[in-house]
């Protein structure tokens, strides 16, 4: 058993769990934060994306005990009905989801991705490694390709993110 202190959405939790417990299972099965989804459990779909210390990661491929003292933001920390974040609201308005299962991961991913782009990080499709001036649709799509959506809401996911990131169509 490992004792781990996690700060999730600003709230401190002391987790006492098997060392094998992933951050994803800690959130879902131990802390009752089921907004973060398990789609593959192997880093192949992105449904479990959360933001740890400001960066988006797959919470399925990291152990909870490796995050002692870390600040974690999950979908529940971004907004709630009646007080949605801009991205959450844009996903609703643009129908950036259907079944909704990949959606928390998409939104956490997009939230952090916009910051990565602001920091000037290039992507695989950037013509210039100096980084893009604005997020084109192609840039958004590449940067969001780690989040699978089987309902295939991709065009609307791009529309929602473009609206918030102020990119160009």
């Amino acid at each position: 058993m490992e004792t781990t202190e996690l700060t999730v959405n600003g709230k401190r939790h002391e987790l006492e769990a098997d060392s094998r417990v992933t951050l994803l299972d800690a959130l879902r099965n131990h802390l009752g934060l089921t907004g973060t989804k398990k789609g593959c459990d192997h880093g192949q779909c992105g449904a479990c994306t959360v933001i740890v210390e400001g960066r988006r990661i797959n919470s399925c491929l990291t152990l909870a005990c490796m995050h002692d003292g870390d600040e974690i933001t999950t979908i529940e920390g971004l907004g709630e009905p009646g007080n949605l974040s801009d991205l959450q609201a844009a996903f609703v308005a643009h129908d950036g989801f259907q079944c909704g299962y990949c959606t928390p991961g998409q939104i956490c991913s997009a939230t952090a991705m916009i910051e990565e782009a602001k920091a000037g990080w290039p992507s695989f499709v950037s013509d210039d490694l100096a980084g893009p001036d604005a997020l084109s649709d192609e840039e958004i799509s590449e940067r969001m390709s780690g989040n699978l959506c089987r309902c295939a809401a991709y065009p609307n996911i791009v529309n929602a993110i473009r609206q918030v990131a102020g990119g160009k169509s």
Binding site: R28, G32, L33, T34, G35, T36, K37, K38, T74, I75, E76, L78, G79, E80, P81, G82, L84, Q88, A89, F91, V92, A93, D95, F97, G100, Y101, T103, P104, I107
Partner: peptide, 21 residues
């Protein structure tokens, strides 16, 4: 019209099979 359950889905509050307490 926007999906009425949309706000629940985008905030992680829709209850899928594994998520009942």
């Amino acid at each position: 019209m926007d999906r009425p359950e949309g706000p629940l889905k985008v905030s992680g509050q829709a209850t899928y099979a594994h998520e009942w307490d």
